[in-house]
């Protein structure tokens, strides 16, 4: 947009007609476009699969999509906060493994769930806090700080146990195995937790000053600081939130599998990053939506399911997700390049 646009801004805002509407739309909602692209891809995948297989869009399948990917969705919410500030958190997979096995071992030694569940969440918070403090107060790059978190979580998981631990606690089993049904559709408490996480995450991002500061920090950290916003607290908090989500995902996964396993979530951090990016969050920060990340999870899950249906190698999942990730990054790059030029 050039100088002419600036001088006509006053009129274009109130200006009617199709052109005015398009102008208003693009000036307001340009950042939603990548997420729309993700929705389009999801619809195309689902429609394509339904046409190809004929029995894809069933209640069972769709319900399983949420159930199987509930832990991923929880992690994606936390990761969205981090990436919107232009950070990254590599620790989520191993934090999930650690809190999962830690919880399982506490359950196994008879500790009641009212203690175990908060302990699981708090251990995730502790690792997130460590990463956040390293990033904010010691100028450590997020990549490296969260790498330390990754090592720490994975190692601690093995310190707790080298083998998987079965969980017999009735509350946890209830979380994992209960099915609320509606016709063909069903949802487990873990699925409810995942959806609630998404909703709370989206509300915090959109309707709190903290959430808006997250966006401001991602847009321009220096500006945010000069505007008098509390940048330091915000940057620490996003890693704490991601750690909390890691703990919650540990709970969800333990409930889903009925056991804790120290090898859970190896490489999951990459899946989560991929899912968040596919959902329309810019890795350079400042743009992205929690709801978009949810769409990203569904895209990921759908690709997985389709490959299952085709009886193809599971390894195709990662190849396709990798290709999709590349596609989205190139598209984002083009968008950013265009908006840079327009200034």
């Amino acid at each position: 947009m050039s100088a002419t646009d600036a001088t006509t801004t006053t009129s274009s805002a109130s200006g009617a007609g199709a052109k005015g509407m398009i102008g208003t739309f693009t000036s307001r909602y340009a950042s939603v476009l990548p997420t729309f692209a993700a929705i389009t891809i999801l619809i195309a995948l689902l429609a394509g699969a339904e046409i190809y297989f004929g029995n894809f869009l069933t209640g069972r399948n769709m319900s399983a999509l949420l159930l199987d990917n509930a832990y991923l969705m929880v992690l994606a919410v936390g990761m969205t906060f981090v990436i919107v500030t232009a950070g990254i958190d590599l620790s989520v997979g191993s934090v999930m493994a650690f809190t999962g096995i830690f919880g399982a071992s506490l359950f196994a030694s008879g500790v009641p769930f009212v203690i175990v569940i908060p302990v699981m969440l708090l251990s995730g918070v502790a690792i997130g806090l460590l990463i956040g403090v390293l990033v904010q107060y010691f100028n450590v790059q997020p990549f490296i700080a969260s790498l330390a978190g990754l090592f720490l979580g994975r190692g601690l998981a093995y310190v707790v146990s080298l083998q998987s631990i079965r969980v017999e606690d009735p509350v946890l089993l209830w979380l994992g195995s209960t099915r609320f049904t509606l016709g063909d559709f069903y949802i487990a408490p873990t699925g409810v937790i995942a959806l609630l996480t998404v909703i709370v995450g989206a509300l915090v991002m959109h309707f709190t000053r903290f959430g808006r500061t997250v966006y401001a920090v991602g847009g321009s950290e220096q500006s945010a600081r000069l505007m008098g916003l509390n940048v330091a607290r915000t940057k620490v908090m996003v890693y704490v939130i991601s750690g909390l989500c890691g703990g919650l995902a540990g709970l969800v996964l333990t409930a889903y599998t009925g056991s804790g396993y120290p090898r859970n979530g190896i490489g999951t951090e990459l899946d989560v990053i991929a899912v968040v990016v596919i959902g329309g969050t810019l890795l350079s920060g400042g743009r992205g939506y929690v709801l978009g990340s949810m769409i990203g999870v569904f895209v990921f899950g759908t690709i997985n399911t389709i490959i299952n249906f085709m009886g193809a190698e599971q390894s195709w999942t990662h190849i396709i997700v990798g290709a999709l990730l590349l596609l989205f990054i190139v598209v984002q790059r083009a968008i950013v390049a265009r908006s840079d030029r327009s200034r």
Binding site: M1, D5, T24, S27, R28
Partner: peptide
């Protein structure tokens, strides 16, 4: 004296 669409993105203005 500015009449702007408050919901438009800042980057779209001069």
């Amino acid at each position: 004296g500015l009449r702007l669409d408050s919901r438009s993105e800042l980057g779209s203005h001069s």
